[in-house]
Each structure stands twice: as structure tokens, then as C-alpha cells.
Nucleic acid binder design. Structure first.
Length: 487
RNA sequence: CGGGGCGUGGCUCAGUCUGGUAGAGCGCUCGGUUCGGGACCGAGAGGUCGAAGGUUCGAAUCCUUUCGCCCCGACCA
């Protein structure tokens, strides 16, 4: 594709420009691309078919990865007796303010209130206690795709909603080492998935104590950088140690005949990933979807002219069938009530990676006219070998989206060696700042209060910060932490 | 939860200050001509003004309460 990109042409005018108001831009995209809509209940959104199709892609491709690493799916119930939630001290404290209760059923007040799961460690704990007796029963590697409810004060579609869809894996192991290995194995899967499928580069690392999951020994996260320079926690993996095993008496008889508590983990990613994709790749014309998660990777727009129904349309159908046979998700839009120009804008807004325009001129030349969403580059492609050309083009779009996002992140990541530098970096369009930290919660809290930046995580490979003073207090630093303003 | 802004056909908004019985553009429906970057002409449908209560002869407009959405902050695995 040799033609030059023309980024300046604003064909889509219904969306607030990112530079004017990024939040508004985001909400416009969600609404105009028909990803989601508000429901009658505050904080709850309807995920519309187009948005849900993206979620289905995420589900499918993550699920494959879980299965390939020995995990199985199951379904645990929505309602949990309040008493269960109270069993793990840290856990209750963390979740109590966000829990929704069911107090009545069958026209009567319930004897024990039920909580709508904010996460399912507790019910998994109860069941694992029943199912696990021997070291031979381990490991248990169960995942579930479910909805959870966490009462939130401020909500935004996909990024933070009261109810959201996610997967939560819950595993139990014989040794601490195995549990740690599992925790990191999943984190690696999340990272690989985000980069290769969502084209969203992430920083993987460990959470500080104050940002840890309520009840976990260690929490790891992957963090992505959004287009406005703020970080998004895209997934978490927790090593729960024996905390939940002790609270729920998940015990097994070991190889040495002694009774031991199991070592458990939990991990999840949610529909928030969709928000991440929107804010990682989107531009002023709307959504840009990586081909790997796009509900339609290719949209074919026939140009209706003269005898197009006898000439152009059959060719379009033929090409659509040919692409489908090659495993490409393709939509042919032959709707006569909209003009081609309208369709171009519409599919751009919806982020379809590649558009094919086919009209009489193309039929004559035995070629199709293709337009990439990511670079806006347009070019003719010969019909001969079209499927291969399109497969290659989609692969290139996938790759260049990741590269573009990586470059953006690198351009918005800096090292700070003084507190003033950190503060300065948090102004305007912030980004990640790598800075030495003493691991004292007080410094972390002070930094947050003064700059709004939080420690996103302590990336692997950055654990050592030799000879450097803590960015805040000046005492010897123990780690290099990645700071950012976060969603 | 605190501060601010906003709720009027599907969407964006005017009308509210100075009460007099609801308007525009886009979209939608029908017919026709079009169609290579959000087409054009003609004819139509559609709202009781977020909700409840109050003041008044009369309320989108004034008063009270309430719900929702957005922004900033607090809070948030």
C-alpha cells in the first residue's frame, strides 16, 4: 500500500476530539460505536451486541489459553451467605464497603443476609474444603466466567461499573512454590494475551502492600498506558498464601502423612479490557480494533452504480465467501438505504480494521480498493491472491498497532531522580514514571496525596535500586517502582 | 460522600431570567432520483418538557423534594 496516509481528514464528526476532552471522547466512542448503553439502574450498563462480540473474542481466546495450561471451567453461585465473607479478616475489611445484599426472598426477610458476590474466593474456599483431602487431589485448577457486583460511587462504561463480567481463576496447590509458579504463569498469560491479541503493551510487576488484594500475600498486576497518559490496571493475579486455606480449613494430608493447609491463588481480567482497547488505540474518528478481537476484521462496501446488482454484488459475495473460508471475519454491507460514504464513516467509527470498496472500476481492473483503519492508507489490491494479501494486511495491522502503542508508552515513560521531577512529570499528559522507593507506605501515601500518582507496580527486573535514595524521603531505596495516575 | 454542570421528540440543542399551553437541525417513515468520503427533492410520523408534590385562572418556565447523567475531589482487589 503505497498511498500516503491522510490523518487530518475528519470524516467522522460526531465524536468529541481527544485533545478537547478525553473523557468525553471515550464516552462518545462507547455510545456511537454501539458498544454499550446506560441502563435504568445507576452504575449498570448494557453491553450491546457489537461490544459483546468483542468480549466473546476475549473470552474465547483467553479460555483457550487457560485450557492449554490445564485449567477447567465451572460455575459457582451468585449469592454467598454473609457469614462466609466474614471469615477472612483482610478480605471483609477490603470488600465490606462495596458489597450489595439480598435481604428478602419469597416474600420474607431472610434469616441470614446474602451477599451478591464481589469476587468468589469465599465460596470457592468452602467448596475446596469439601473437595480436597489428599495431596493427590491437588492441584485444583478451576476458572469461571461470571458477573460480579461491587457497589461503586463513580462509574464509567467498561472501566468501572457496578456489575461487570470477568473470569476468575481459583487454584489450590500442595506447596508455596507451586502456588507462586501458578500466580506468575497466569500473569504471563495475561501479558502475552494483552500484547498479542489486544495489541496493548503492559508492564507486569508486583503491587505494593497498600494496593494488594484484600486477603492476598502477594498481588501482581499488568498495567497499560492509555492515550491520555493515565495507567489502567488490566489484570491481577494473586498469591493468597495459606490465608484463605486457613480461614476455610482447606486441608490435605501430605506425602509425609501430616495434615497441611493448601496454598491458593486467584486471578482475573474483566470487561475493563474493552475500555483498555478503546483508550489504547482509538483516535478522533472513533474506535480502532486490533484484527484479533474485531467482530468484523473486514467490511466490504459495494459501490452501487448502474448494473451493480448483476456485476458488482455477485463479486462481493464471492469475495466475502472466499475470505470467510480462509477464517477471516467479514461483513458485506449491501444495504441500499445508505450511501457508500456514510458507510465508510460508520465502519471507521466502529473500528473495523480493513475496508474493501468494490465498484465497477474495480471489477474492470480485477482489483479491490482497500483502506486500513489504523494508518488510513488506501490502495488497490489485485483480486488474484486477494485472500493472502488480506491475511498479510491484517497481520500487519495487528503488528503495527502494538508497535504504535509501545512507542507511545516509551515516549510517555520517564525516570525521575528527584521528587520535583516526579511532580513535573505528573502534570499535563502524565505517563509512567520510574522512581526509586524505600517501600515505606507513608512515602507512597504522601506521594499520592501530593501528586495523585500511585505506585502501579514494581516491574520485574526493576526490583533492585542500588545506591539510590527514595524519591520521597531520601532514605536508601529498596526498589524501583512505576508511578502513574490511574483509572 | 463533598463541589460544580446538565436533564425538553431517537440524537444535539433553543425556549426557563421577564409563566399564556412546545420549536430547530439531524435522524426516522413513504415515494422518487442518487451512490468511489456521512446525497437530494417531495410528503409524513413523533415530545407534556427526568419524576413527584406545591404556588397560580394558567407551569417546560416559579418553589420543595427526588432520580439520573457528566466533570473535579474523596473512596475504590
Amino acid at each position: 500500500m503505497a498511498a500516503k496516509p491522510n490523518q487530518d481528514e475528519a470524516f467522522v464528526t460526531e465524536i468529541t476530539k481527544q485533545s478537547i476532552d478525553f473523557s468525553k471522547w471515550y464516552l462518545d466512542v462507547v455510545r456511537k460505536a454501539e458498544l454499550a448503553d446506560y441502563s435504568p439502574v445507576k452504575g449498570f450498563m448494557v453491553i450491546r451486541p457489537y461490544g459483546y462480540a468483542i468480549w466473546e473474542q476475549i473470552q474465547q481466546q483467553l479460555d483457550q489459553r487457560f485450557k492449554a495450561t490445564g485449567h477447567v471451567n465451572a460455575y459457582f453461585p451468585l449469592l454467598i451467605p454473609e457469614s462466609l465473607l466474614l471469615k477472612e479478616a483482610q478480605h471483609v475489611e477490603g470488600f465490606a464497603p462495596q458489597v450489595a445484599y439480598v435481604t428478602h426472598g419469597g416474600g420474607e426477610e431472610l434469616e441470614e443476609k446474602l451477599v451478591i458476590r464481589p469476587t468468589s474466593e469465599t465460596i470457592f474456599g468452602v467448596m475446596y474444603q469439601k473437595w480436597i483431602q489428599s495431596w493427590r487431589d491437588l492441584p485444583v485448577l478451576i476458572n469461571q466466567w461470571a458477573n460480579v457486583v461491587r457497589w461503586e460511587k463513580v462509574t464509567r462504561p467498561f472501566l468501572r461499573t457496578t456489575e461487570f463480567l470477568w473470569q476468575e481463576g481459583h487454584t489450590a496447590h500442595e506447596t508455596a512454590e507451586e502456588a507462586q509458579e501458578e500466580t506468575l504463569k497466569i500473569l504471563a498469560i495475561y501479558k502475552e494475551f494483552c500484547e498479542n491479541v489486544l495489541a496493548m503493551p503492559v508492564v507486569d510487576g508486583q503491587k505494593s502492600d497498600s494496593e494488594k488484594f484484600a486477603g492476598a500475600s502477594k498481588t501482581y498486576s499488568i498495567e497499560a498506558l492509555m492515550g491520555d497518559g493515565r495507567a489502567l490496571q488490566a489484570g491481577t493475579s494473586h498469591n493468597l498464601g495459606q490465608n484463605f486455606a486457613k480461614a476455610f480449613e482447606i486441608q490435605f494430608q501430605g506425602r509425609d502423612k501430616t495434615l497441611q493447609h493448601a496454598w491458593t491463588t486467584s486471578w482475573g481480567v474483566s470487561t475493563r479490557l474493552i475500555g483498555g482497547v478503546i483508550m489504547t488505540h482509538g483516535d478522533d474518528s472513533g474506535l480502532i480494533l486490533p484484527p484479533a478481537v474485531a467482530p468484523y476484521q473486514v467490511v466490504i462496501v459495494p459501490i452501487p452504480r448502474g448494473t451493480w446488482k448483476e456485476t458488482v454484488l455477485p463479486k462481493c459475495e464471492e469475495i466475502a465467501a472466499q475470505l470467510k473460508a480462509a477464517g477471516i471475519r467479514v461483513k458485506l454491507d449491501a444495504d441500499e438505504s445508505q450511501t457508500p460514504g456514510w458507510k465508510f464513516s460508520e465502519y471507521e467509527m466502529r473500528g473495523v480494521p480493513l475496508r474493501l470498496e468494490i465498484g465497477p472500476k474495480d471489477i474492470e481492473k480485477s482489483s479491490v480498493f482497500a483502506a486500513r483503519r489504523d494508518t488510513r492508507v488506501k490502495a488497490s489490491i489485485p483480486m488474484e491472491g486477494l485472500t493472502d494479501a488480506i491475511t498479510a494486511l491484517l497481520a500487519d495491522i495487528q503488528k503495527s498497532l502494538l508497535e504504535r502503542a509501545r512507542t507511545f508508552r516509551e515516549e510517555h515513560t520517564s525516570n525521575a531522580d528527584s521528587y520535583d521531577a516526579l511532580k513535573a512529570a505528573m502534570e499535563g499528559r502524565p505517563g509512567f514514571v520510574i522512581a526509586p522507593w524505600c517501600e515505606e507506605a507513608q512515602c507512597e501515601a504522601d506521594i499520592k496525596a501530593e501528586t495523585q500518582a500511585t505506585i502501579r507496580n514494581i516491574p520485574f527486573g526493576y526490583e533492585q535500586a542500588p545506591d539510590k535514595p527514595c524519591i520521597k524521603c531520601g532514605k536508601p531505596a529498596k526498589v524501583s517502582a512505576w508511578f502513574a495516575k490511574a483509572y
